[in-house]
Computed example of a mutant assay.
Amino acid sequence: MTAQIEGFYDTATATVSYVVFEAAGGPCAIIDPVLDYDAKAGRIRTDSADRIAGFVQSHQLHVQWLLETHAHADHLSASAYLKDKLGGKIGIGAQITAVQSAFRDIYNLEPSFLLDGSQFDKLFEADETFHIGKMEVKVLHVPGHTPADVAYQVDRKDVFVGDTLFMPDVGTARCDFPGGDAVLLYVSIKRLLALPPETRLFMCHDYPPEGRDVFWRTTVAEQKAKNIHVNDTADLQSFVRMRRSRDSNLSVPALLLPALQINIRAGNLPPSDEIGLHSLKIPLNRF
């Protein structure tokens, strides 16, 4: 059965979230949902997540999974909110524990914060399989952007790549976050590009060059032929040199500090204080 895929583009963060399902009335997975955050006011909204929830409800879908490709630095995860609203289990790659360890120290988180990934319902090991209804999903460990990045391969036809690849005219993801590694990213990309050429690849972001509309679907064949950073002619040394040079000139994502302390908690807010107030930490001079 061919997967039905609905993409939701969030303009504020250039993020694409997905609902993946077999047919109306059946089970589905939600991938990389966005929780809206107004950094100036410190205010959270659920408009983007509610759009997804509206689609799920209008198609009478049953949420089986809420899947994260990694702990995002550019948006807050809406997985916990959607789980409360729609049900389902939150899954992420097992290496999230390495990301939790790095950012616990950066934020000096509360002693009760656990580094075992137990904030999530399921930690996926590399090459593990599970199902969305009758559709088999294989978890591809694709580290490089972070140690915990995974891609989800649905029925061998469609792959949700997270931040490992972008559209061919945009290139590849940065590797300068804690645990990032340009060599590992190159190896991960080559694994994806070794899939059959007709395999469809679904991006987590699109930052279109001027004159191009937003688009988030491509194929292995198109990436191999046209990706500006890692096509068939790009070798490891030139890619690593390019990636490190490029990353050294990139600014820190605007929502990195708010986002990571929520995303390593599976989208849950930090514990409230004695008056019931949830607060985020902004550590100074760490990036």
Rank of each mutant, 00 (worst) to 15 (best):
R241I: 10
V183C: 05
E22K: 05
S17P: 01
Q64M: 11
L192Q: 02
D176K: 02
C28Q: 04
H72Y: 12
F124P: 01
A98D: 05
M1I: 14
I275Q: 13
G179Y: 05
P270W: 02
L114H: 01
E22Y: 06
V161T: 13
D181M: 04
V20D: 00
I44S: 00
Q95S: 09
D163Y: 04
H141R: 11
F21E: 04
T2K: 10
N227C: 13
G54L: 11
Y9C: 03
V154P: 08
F287E: 09
N285C: 10
R265F: 13
T164F: 08
P270N: 02
A49W: 03
V187F: 06
W216G: 04
F103L: 02
Y207V: 09
H72N: 12
T146K: 00
E128Y: 10
H59T: 08
L109T: 10
T97N: 03
V220H: 09
R246S: 14
E274P: 00
Q60T: 15
L109I: 11
Q4V: 15
A102K: 00
N249I: 15
A173W: 08
V183F: 01
R212N: 13
E136P: 13
A266F: 11
G42D: 06
D121V: 15
A39Q: 00
P147I: 06
S279G: 12
V183L: 07
R244M: 08
V183S: 05
Q60M: 12
R104A: 12
D163W: 06
G117H: 12
N231Y: 09
H70V: 07
M242K: 00
A39E: 08
I275C: 03
T129N: 10
R51D: 12
F103T: 01
R265G: 07
N231D: 15
E128T: 11
P27Q: 09
R174A: 14
V252H: 06
G180C: 06
I264W: 02
K83C: 12
R51G: 09
A71Y: 08
L192H: 03
T164I: 09
E125D: 15
K85Q: 09
V150S: 03
L256G: 02
R244D: 11
Q261V: 04
H131S: 13
I90R: 04
A266Q: 02
F113H: 07
E222G: 08
L284W: 13
P258S: 02
R156W: 14
D47H: 06
L66Y: 05
L114G: 02
R51V: 15
N249M: 14
E128F: 11
M167A: 04
V99T: 12
V19G: 01
D206R: 03
L109K: 00
F202K: 03
Y186F: 11
K89T: 12
A49Q: 00
V187R: 02
A73E: 07
